[in-house]
Amino acid sequence: MSASQQTTHAEPARGLMERWLPAVAAIAFLIAFPFVADGYLLHVANISLIFILLAIGQNIITGYTGMLSLGHAAFYGVGAYTSALLTLRLGVSWPVAFLASGVVASIVGMLIALPCLRVRTDFLSLITIAFAQMFFVVANGWMGLTRGPMGLTGIPRISIGSWVAHNDISYYAVFACIVVVIYVAVQRILNSSIGRAWEMVRDDEVGALSLGVDVTYYKVLSFGVGTFLAGLAGSMFAHYIRFLSPDAFLLLESLIIMQMAILGGLASLPGSVLGAVLLISIPEALRSSEPLLITYRPGLAGALLVAMMIWRPQGILGRTRATPPIVRQISDTLRRLVGARPVANP
């Protein structure tokens, strides 16, 4: 959130209590969760944590910098395969492979995006879809490396030194720590001059240029950070599910990640968390009872996207002056619950 927005929205001064309460509550919830949840819920939580990273990455690119990337799942896939292959073939330890997967995904992402971001950012959507298709063709066709559609099996569990994550609770602990660290780090970046530059590029590119903001640099940086997070999430996924096949990283998956970022609110970090949790847990809850709903999920999600763009482009947690009072009350309550600040209307 830029400084100007904080002043224009005239937020009441926030006391120490108000400021730290949401964070403390969130941490307390994360710690208490495994004690009350059963195995299945824990699994859903682990998947949600992975997707929270993906949604945050997408939100940095789309919500904060205003670039439409439709290949997030492919960068997630690049990370997953990097990490799996490094540990399987070269015997690299997991923490190294984890960081390497983020770095590789980010480098690939920046190389893909560079020609496009230099001249026509709108076409990033096309380039990223094309990259996703190419990723699928390569992952599916390069039998020697990826074993193609048969998939990679026997990927080792997450291990740090001699400690091995042997059950869902240990995975949960690792994932929760990663997500908390990343969340705080991203929030710091967004509150810094980098975050303000991103939002300026989104809101007025020519204006940003005229004030000496290196627009291309910040766009590429944003894309690099977003894909870095996708790569990390890929590594988490690979060592959690321990089986990789190329069809886990299709365009549909990218669209779901996009929906998470939009549903919770573009340019809202708590929104990304909420969006990821909702879009993972709702289908899980419905899976057994409503097969039709799953079949037509893309169509329903599409209708939701159109409706959100028309009536609520700022997502569930955002708010504008034009918001009807009842919606404002609900969203204010929600915002207070998760400790969000006012959100820019993207």
Partner: peptide
């Protein structure tokens, strides 16, 4: 903002 109609277009395409 330009990103809004594009997302709307994506949604319409999905429908």
């Amino acid at each position: 903002n330009r990103i809004v109609p594009m997302i709307s277009a994506l949604g319409a395409g999905l429908v």
